[in-house]
Amino acid sequence: MKDIIGIGLIGAGRAGMIHAENFVSRVPGARMAGVADNSEEAAKKAADRLHIPYWYTDYRKLLQNPEIDAVIVVTPTKYHKEIVLEAAAAEKHILCEKPMAMNSEECKEMIQAAEEHQVKLQIGFMRRFDKSFRKAKEIIDSGEIGQVVMVKSLTHGPSTPREWMYDIEKSNGPLAEVNSHDIDTMRWLADSEAVSIHAMAGNFRCREAAENYPDFYDTVLMNVRMANGAICNIDGAQGVRYGYDARVDVLGTKGLVQIGGLKETTTVSCTKEHGMSSGIIASWTDLFSEAYVQEDISFVRCILEDTEPEVTGYDGWKAVEIVKAGNRSIKTGGIINLNEKEKPDGEEKKC
Rank of each mutant, 00 (worst) to 15 (best):
D3I: 00
D3K: 13
I5S: 05
G6C: 07
A15W: 04
M17V: 08
F23A: 04
F23M: 09
P28T: 08
A30G: 09
R31P: 00
A33I: 02
V35C: 09
E41D: 06
D48E: 15
D48H: 11
D48M: 00
R49T: 07
R49H: 13
L50K: 06
L50E: 07
L50W: 03
T57N: 05
D58C: 09
L62V: 13
D69M: 05
V71C: 11
V74K: 07
T75F: 07
Y79W: 10
L85M: 15
L85H: 13
A87N: 14
N103T: 03
S104R: 06
C107W: 06
K108Y: 06
Q112L: 12
H117P: 05
Q118D: 11
K120S: 08
L121H: 08
L121F: 05
R127A: 01
A136V: 02
G143A: 04
Q147T: 12
V148C: 01
M150F: 00
K152D: 11
P158T: 05
S159H: 07
T160R: 06
T160L: 01
P161T: 00
I168Q: 01
N172Y: 00
G173S: 10
G173W: 11
P174R: 06
N179L: 15
S192G: 04
E193I: 04
E193N: 11
E193H: 12
V195A: 04
S196M: 14
A199H: 02
M200Y: 09
N203T: 03
C206D: 06
Y217C: 12
Y217A: 04
M226T: 01
G229C: 07
C232N: 10
Y242K: 01
G243D: 02
V248N: 07
D249L: 07
V250E: 09
I259T: 02
L262N: 02
T267Q: 14
S269W: 07
T271Q: 09
K272L: 09
E273Q: 14
H274Q: 08
G275A: 15
S277C: 09
G279I: 10
I281Y: 08
A282N: 12
A282H: 12
S283W: 07
T285H: 08
E290D: 15
D296G: 09
V300Q: 05
E305G: 00
T307Y: 10
G313I: 04
G316C: 09
S329G: 14
G333E: 08
I335G: 05
I336A: 03
L338I: 07
N339E: 13
E340S: 12
K341D: 01
D345R: 03
E348Q: 10
E348R: 13
E348S: 12
K350W: 05
C351S: 10
